[in-house]
């Protein structure tokens, strides 16, 4: 799927990058580089969910088996917060800082915000940006007012060249809710009260 590997910036090989810098301004730029790195990394591999250890959460909901969402196992097992080649890893408190910074930028959201703050969504585009992307696609393909299934939205050949192709189910729901907020979409549910379709104008 991904022929090329993600090219880490050279700073990723630099041991002090993994320790919290005492100088505040240095620390701030360190933090912002970390945030950028994580977003780019996730965007490159189309990673939607990470856990607090920086590992990809492989989700196997029913539709993913058809997509064959296959990350290289190396990526699946590695943690973004750890560089084994220089034997460095981030300390949990630094990770927390990064997470809250990403949260502030609306690029991160805990999957379960109440009890289990172990796993989070990574929005390499913010939900707002995603919703505009989808709206634009709907408009460009003349699908306003058409009923679309979520499966169709994520997996149809029409959307195959779109960045939201194979989008994480949970992220998609968030984006769609954003569209509902904007009064541009209505969500349709099935008998089990599961969101299955959407009508976007």
């Amino acid at each position: 799927m991904n022929e090329k590997e993600f090219k880490f910036p050279s700073i990723y090989e630099f041991p002090p990058f993994f320790t919290k810098q005492p100088n505040l301004s240095t620390y701030n730029s360190q933090l912002s580089i970390w945030c950028k790195l994580i977003l780019e990394y996730c965007k490159f591999y189309k990673i939607w969910q990470l856990n607090i250890e920086g590992k990809v959460i492989s989700i196997n909901d029913e539709s993913d088996e058809t997509i064959g969402l296959s990350l290289p196992t190396k990526i699946k097992e590695n943690s973004i917060f750890e560089n084994k080649s220089i034997n460095r890893r981030l300390k949990p408190d630094f990770i927390k800082d990064i997470i809250s910074e990403l949260q502030r930028q609306q690029h991160l959201e805990f999957i379960d915000n109440t009890t289990n703050q172990q796993q989070f969504y990574i929005f390499w585009y913010t939900v707002e940006e995603w919703s505009s992307l989808i709206l634009q696609w709907i408009e460009n393909t003349g699908q306003q007012g058409t009923v679309l299934t979520l499966f169709e939205l994520r997996n149809s050949p029409l959307s195959s060249n779109q960045e939201f192709h194979n989008m994480d189910h949970g992220v998609l729901i968030k984006v769609l809710n954003k569209l509902v907020e904007k009064k541009r979409a209505t969500i349709m549910k099935d008998e089990q009260n599961q969101i299955v379709g959407v009508k976007i104008i």
Partner: peptide, 26 residues
């Protein structure tokens, strides 16, 4: 999570539901 069909958001008609069912089948 809201099935809020307010004033300006698109209304879901019975036809839409039928189409959705068919698309789900597909």
């Amino acid at each position: 999570m809201g099935n809020t069909s307010s004033v300006s958001s698109p209304r879901v008609t019975p036809q839409d539901k039928a189409i959705l069912q068919m698309k789900l089948q597909r």
